[in-house]
Design a binder for these strands. Structure first.
Lengths: 246, 246
DNA sequence: CGTGTGTTTGATGAATTTCAAAGCAGGTGG
DNA sequence: CCACCTGCTTTGAAATTCATCAAACACACG
């Protein structure tokens, strides 16, 4: 049974080799025909240059996007122009889920480095999901995961001090990179301090000071955008509700 | 064409008269047979006493719930016991969407007054949605709307000061009550100051002071939990990025 | 009428923002 | 190849906002 599954997953992987959303959103147990359908759905690759917008708030929804290569941020602007970063997306993450409600994107999505996405025609996706229950179920789960992620952010913004927020942010990046096969201890930040600050509800200066604190306590080594995590356990301990350094 | 639709919607309304999720999540253009299916899906009514939990974090997902009567809050607890209220739900709002990802609820849901919900068996819902494209589409939209709502909260927590947050909170309640046919100018808060504070990332004392500020500027009249909005426009103006009272 | 829960207000202190200035790195043109 | 921008980061000092602590108050309920 597991044999069959992993075999089909493999076929799928080959068929969809231009897209790595596999491990995140693809159902298993499909026929070759179905795989072909799925493949055609996500065939469109799109390159996005650093600092270019993949889409902007109020653009009509046509595609959902799965990041293939690179790094994105999504943000919303308040009426008076203040930016709120709502997320950072790395390979395998989805973009555009917020647009399904109204049919218009509610965020701006920018590439933080030269990137590539799979464009998934949303109408086609819904049609196909109609025929593939497991695809539909996975789509539901992807939506739900996004909600859970946002709840985590509410907790962070509502209850954590600046150092805890920063530690939580670094740990989150670390884990997500790790899941994707990269080092969890050393990585490079693709965003500016100001964007981290916006995401965490803090000013950029506060981010700098937070980094200095973590460094002073030998939890991390940071130079510019290069991060090395020195003491994962104490970092986790800090986030887990301990307001002070241990 | 609109005739047919509204007629069917009406049939649906009758069929599902025990549940008012209609206007929020039901697709139009269904056959009588389909209406019957949908009706059976949401037939289960559940009463929840004030302060009782509808479900708790880590309970396995069996149902989504649509609030029929009453008022709920959802919250998550951090490891060290701090509460973060993630939302307040009134009639027509859905509960439990966060659980679809893992199959376990991630929040606690409490009734803030004697309430009643429609329990929607999630597995059945997915099955039925498989057969009714418009139901599936609506489900997707409901998920997406929740994400948009959360993004609004991120903006609020990340970029607004305490008075702006409070004003935004009151306006949000006002609008949602209005959409449901209640007064947008006068209403009763079902939650304590502490719960408002948790939701807005503030302490309860700060909520009190914020209310005093709004009162001083003749924007609202508040006594206990009774709220009367005196100047909707200036309240909106305050939220729209004007850091100070106008 | 007392008790408990929830609300309000004041005084103080801590955390974060703001303002300011200097440092650093990468890219460009002389 | 160097000097000079420009954008980003870092650090310091002052100002502000919000949290904390404390006490009084209001109201409902037994």
């Amino acid at each position: 049974m597991p044999e069959t599954r992993s075999c089909q997953a493999h076929a799928l992987k080959l068929a969809c080799s231009n897209c790595n959303i596999l491990e995140f959103c693809l159902p298993l147990g499909l026929t070759g025909e179905e795989v072909a359908q799925l493949d055609s759905l996500i065939m469109q690759r799109v390159k996005v240059k650093k600092d270019a917008a993949l889409y902007r708030a109020c653009d009509p929804l046509r595609f959902l996007y799965a990041v293939r290569i690179g790094f994105f941020k999504t943000d919303v602007l308040s009426l008076d122009g203040r930016e709120q970063v709502t997320g950072f997306q790395m390979p395998g993450d989805m973009l555009g889920l917020d647009a399904v409600n109204s049919g218009l994107y509610t965020c701006n999505a920018f590439a933080l480095e030269d990137s590539e996405v799979c464009a998934i025609h949303f109408d086609h996706l819904e049609k196909l999901a109609q025929e593939l229950p497991s695809l539909q179920h996975n789509l539901n789960k992807i939506f739900s995961r996004e909600i859970v992620r946002d709840h985590d952010m509410l907790m962070l913004l509502g209850n954590m001090n600046s150092d805890e927020r920063l530690a939580a942010f670094l740990l989150n990046l670390s884990q997500r990179l790790n899941m994707r096969g990269y080092s969890s201890k050393e990585f490079v930040l693709k965003m500016r301090r100001e964007e981290i600050g916006s995401y965490l509800g803090l000013r950029l200066e506060t981010i700098c000071r937070g980094i200095a604190h973590l460094r002073d306590h030998a939890l991390v080594e940071v130079s510019g955008r290069e991060v090395k995590i020195l003491d994962m356990d104490r970092l986790k301990h800090l986030v887990a509700g301990c307001h002070r350094f241990s």
